[in-house]
Amino acid sequence: MSAELTEIRWHARAGQGAVTAAKLVAEAALREDRYFQAMPEYGPERMGAPLKAFTRISDAPIEISNNIEHPDIVVVLDDTLLDSVDVTEGLAADGAVVVNSPSAPAAIRAQLGLGAGVAVATVDASAIALDTIKRDIPNTPIVGALVSVRPVVALDSVLAQLQATFGKKFAREIIDANLDSVRRAYQEVVYDA
């Protein structure tokens, strides 16, 4: 893993918008004239089924296409997955975990048995989503939390990209609600490094 390449693995259930989140981060990276790769792991699809998605962000062109085995960051959109999926498999020793959960980071750290080198962050992305977008789709707030914990892309890039993507299709208030959810999660995420 070179200094310029960051690898992220996302864990979610189908329908929570993980693929969209991975794409949002990639497109934000494009705004910064950087390089990226975002792919879902394709499997049997049904709402609620666990799925993984992957993102690479780099300052240099990305030519590899192998699976991400040692992610720098793991993002979990659904904390019920923590019991059934090994979300930290292969995680770098100095990596970070960002979980959509109302629990404190220490509790998650204990639950996952993570060592001291790993940063653990939690944010109640579902609550933020329900509050702003009025639906439990935690993907936009979780991206806000992610870039707060590890600035893989700048917050402003994420906000600008959201504005650009949504701006064509949705009403002003929906756009603002999404932007709000990102900002709030950015502020409200708590982590212990």
Partner: peptide, 10 residues
């Protein structure tokens, strides 16, 4: 398939 077809790339 999938590697190029479904991966978001620049």
């Amino acid at each position: 398939g999938f590697i190029t077809t479904h991966s978001i790339a620049r």
